[in-house]
């Protein structure tokens, strides 16, 4: 009688623990999956091309070689433009942590309805646009040459990957030129400004016009 009870108890124990025991025997050695880093931008280059002479190109770069790492951002060049000249500004935006480097500019073109580049510069440094740029006030003039396809408010809104800049005859030394790419998913309209959404880059260069 006791023995039967005893076996019954043991069977209950086995029933309770068998399931747990079986699953626990799987010790793995798997590695985290390789991720295609979508966040990181390591290199941004501003390319000013003289509209009158396509060989006259001024480039200024900023680089954060270790991405999320703690290394400081390096702004490598000053922007030095010629006086009395009209330039078109375009961008090269890369993540060079990956090999080969990933062109983030393409991603921004694909998501142009979610992105806008804003600018600010030493007041009246340019003949066109006038003023100090649209970071402080989104409606201030900037000569955007591109617009997105289907923004939230339906109308084509500026993106900023292609802009026009006309330098005056008077020079500037040691001025500043700031470019700020805002990511504005689901919120970008004709009136959203440089503090709406999230910042993808925010870079300030020294501006010289001579």
């Amino acid at each position: 009688m006791k023995t039967i009870d005893y076996l019954k108890n043991l069977k209950l124990i086995a029933f309770l623990f068998a399931a747990l025991t079986i699953v626990s025997c799987s010790n793995d050695d798997d590695v985290p999956p390789e991720e295609n880093e979508v966040e990181v931008i390591t290199d941004v280059t501003l390319v000013f091309t003289n509209d009158a002479d396509a060989t006259d190109v001024v480039r200024a770069s900023a680089q954060d070689p270790d991405g999320e790492g703690i290394q400081e951002l390096m702004v490598e060049d000053e922007i030095t433009l010629s006086a009395d000249t009209q330039y078109t500004l375009t961008f090269e935006i890369f993540n060079n942590l990956e090999t080969p480097g990933e062109d983030i500019g393409e991603e921004i073109v694909d998501e142009d309805d979610e992105h806008q580049i804003f600018f600010s510069f030493t007041a009246d440094a340019f003949d066109s646009p006038l003023g100090n740029g649209n970071i402080d006030n989104a409606s201030d003039p900037i000569n955007y040459n591109d617009e997105d396809s289907d923004s939230q408010d339906g109308s084509g809104n500026p993106v900023g990957l292609n802009t026009t800049w006309t330098t005056p005859s008077t020079g500037t030394t040691g001025g500043t030129f700031t470019v700020k790419l805002q990511h504005q998913p689901d919120i970008k309209t004709g009136t959203t400004g440089a503090n709406d959404g999230d910042t993808d880059f925010d870079l300030t260069f020294v501006l010289n016009i001579q």
């Binding site: 626990s24 793995d28 798997d30 590695v31 985290p32 999956p33 991720e35 295609n36 880093e37 979508v38």
Partner: peptide, 21 residues
């Protein structure tokens, strides 16, 4: 006592915490 931690794919970023046993 044993623990097994795994990262699932699709975060689009380098894992903040590694896989471990």
């Amino acid at each position: 006592f044993s623990q097994n931690n795994d990262n699932n794919p699709g975060t689009g970023t380098t894992p903040f915490i590694p896989n471990y046993n």
